[in-house]
Design a protein around this nucleic acid. Structure first.
Length: 537
RNA sequence: GGUCGGUUCGUCUAACGGUUAGGACUCAAGAUUUUCAUUCUUGCAAUAGGGGUUCGAUUCCCCUACCGACUACCA
């Protein structure tokens, strides 16, 4: 069976947006499949009709697409779950709610062979049992001991069972757990695990409430039918692994049973417990790949909208619980496919670090070309009312009263500012003064740099700048520093006063660069306005 | 409570049973700089505790502590 083609699946439940932990699970599955030349399958586990959230299924597919994770099977070219079998998608439908007859048939097979039974206990009755046990400081387990005293097809006459099945709908199918057996399991990440069946519940396989299978039944049947070779899923499934082993055995599928790998959880950055949407809201970072608006209209931010590159997001996620064994930290998707190994997946939970996520994005931002950055920046500029014209006309000295700039101006600017940003969404904050003049001046910096002395210097500088050739940054640089030195002024004071005039505060790029970009007329205009409006303290 | 899993710098992590326990993020200091940022250099900082096994345990075993998951007709 080791000769079988590797087939793994990502099987989300459409009960809400895909969490970044879910993206990591999908990613590891994808990397594993692609490295082995196998298939990565999407299956929608929507057997909980009560918790189904409209739009969640499409959101999950869109999120994976944004991450660059494309399934081989289960989703068609248009990004929809496949419902009708075809050569490429032989196991359709890939939505469990549409596979109900299949599960029903297998559930009945289990009953026929004595591995499952009908149970008629109501939820209230079972709750009462659990409360009672709790009061006695013991745990109620629906198993070989207690099922003798409960209402089910093992304890009731078969005529009564048939009658109840025919006349009521309030029945479930439960797995009949064996008595006092040791289930020995092997996990690809955690190694050997043993559990005694006496600690296990007779889990419900078929629900009365919506007449659908539970996860356990549907999952095992589908993994078998879809010829899944490895199940890579979250740690929350580890406690049900014995049941799943027992189910494979009951069906007689142990020779093709998939191997299991249980991934640790993603933990919140501070404190304890698993990462939740609340942590993101509280600490100011997204937990979802894309923006999500829930049915109540509540909006959750996404990595995409926050300005993350999908490659950076994926790269960051890949290293949260896995490492290549080398000191390499930056990986393309293809490199991850090459390097990935289940052997090097970490057993313990990983606390998410938002700072490191930003760092990853910064690394990817620096890899972008100036042209790419300009293209990414332009929508933001347009949003701010800045017009962009394609082409290279009059690239420098481009500030115009109409607020229209050539593409080459933005491109050249990106080259200068990209070292200062983690996100393209930071750009406007960093360089808005290249497009619009300051309207206010930082009081702190005014106090620090603007007085009668510097006012006099600025008036002289105004005249001098008029004479400088501003078509070359180096010329501006030399002229300016030379002028300051020959007058015996302090470099920092003069430069920062100019910066205050040009930017509105004492920060920003080099003065020569600012003058070069905004152009001589605009530079002079800003000096003049500042001299006229800032009161001398 | 029970079952299962986990535990190396603040965080992510590396280390055939033999290393001054390494790297990255964060933070701090210094250098560079006309400011800010960048860059460079340096620094701070860890094997949960206790028993074994061994010439020698971060590494193997046991116990304790702590953390987490599960304990639904949810996945």
């Amino acid at each position: 069976m080791s000769e079988r083609k590797r087939r793994v699946r990502f099987a989300p439940s459409p009960t809400g947006p895909l969490h970044m932990g879910g993206v990591r699970t999908a990613l590891y599955n994808y990397l594993y499949a692609k490295q082995a030349g196998g298939d990565f399958i999407i299956r929608i586990e929507d057997t909980d009709s009560q918790r189904l959230v409209p739009g969640a299924e499409q959101y999950i597919i869109n999120s994976l697409k944004w991450c660059g994770i494309y399934p081989d099977e289960g989703v068609d070219a248009g990004g929809a779950i496949v419902e009708v079998p075809s050569a490429r998608h032989p196991h359709a439908p890939y939505r469990q709610s549409q596979r109900k007859p299949i599960y029903r048939q297998y559930a009945e097979q289990l009953i026929k062979n004595g591995y499952a039974y009908y149970a008629f206990d109501s939820g209230e009755e079972l709750d009462a049992k659990r409360k009672e046990s709790e009061a006695n400081k013991s745990t109620f387990i629906y198993n070989y001991q207690t099922r003798k005293e409960l209402k089910n097809s093992l304890t009731m006459p078969s005529e009564q069972v048939q009658e109840l099945l025919a006349t009521t709908s309030n029945w479930t199918i439960r797995f009949k757990n064996p008595e006092d057996e040791i289930v020995t399991m092997d996990d690809l990440i955690r190694g050997h695990i043993e559990v005694n069946t006496n600690t296990l519940d007779d889990k419900v396989l078929w629900k009365a409430i919506d007449e659908l299978p539970t996860y356990h039944l549907a999952n095992i049947v589908d993994d078998h039918l879809m010829e899944i070779t490895e199940v890579i899923r979250g740690e929350e499934w580890l406690p049900s692994l014995p049941l799943h082993y027992l189910l494979y055995k009951a069906f007689g599928w142990t020779n093709t049973q998939p191997r299991f790998a249980h991934l640790s959880l993603l933990l919140k950055p501070d404190g304890k417990g698993k990462l939740s949407k609340r942590d993101g809201d509280r600490l100011g970072f997204p937990v979802f790949p894309l923006k999500w608006v829930n049915p109540e209209g509540e909006i959750s931010r996404g990595y995409c909208e926050d300005g993350y590159y999908p490659q950076a997001f994926i790269n960051m996620l890949s290293l949260l619980g896995w490492n290549p064994g080398t000191e390499q930290e930056l990986f393309t998707l293809d490199e991850l496919i090459q390097a990935f190994s289940l052997d090097r997946v970490i057993k313990s939970g990983a606390k998410f670090n938002p700072d490191k996520a930003k760092w990853f994005n910064q690394q990817y931002l620096r890899q972008q070309t100036d042209t790419q950055l300009a293209e990414q920046f332009i929508p933001i500029l347009q949003d701010k009312g800045i017009g962009i014209v394609k082409g290279n006309t009059d690239a420098q000295n481009g500030a115009s009263s109409a607020n229209i700039y050539p593409f080459s101006y933005v491109e050249a600017l990106c080259a200068l500012i990209k070292e200062r940003a983690h996100f393209v969404t930071d750009f406007w904050e960093i360089c808005s003064y290249f497009f619009i003049a300051p309207t206010t001046y930082s009081p702190v910096d005014v106090k620090k740099f603007y007085n009668a002395d510097t006012k006099a210097i600025m008036e002289k500088a105004y005249a001098r700048i008029q004479t400088i050739d501003t078509s070359d940054v180096h010329v501006i640089e030399e002229e300016l520093t030379g002028y300051i030195k020959e007058n015996g002024w302090k470099m920092g004071t003069v430069m920062n006063t100019l910066r205050l005039f040009f930017v509105g505060e004492a920060k920003g790029l080099g003065i020569a660069e600012i003058i070069y970009f905004i152009g001589k007329p605009e530079a002079l205009r800003r000096i003049k306005i500042a001299l006229e409006t800032i009161p001398v303290g």
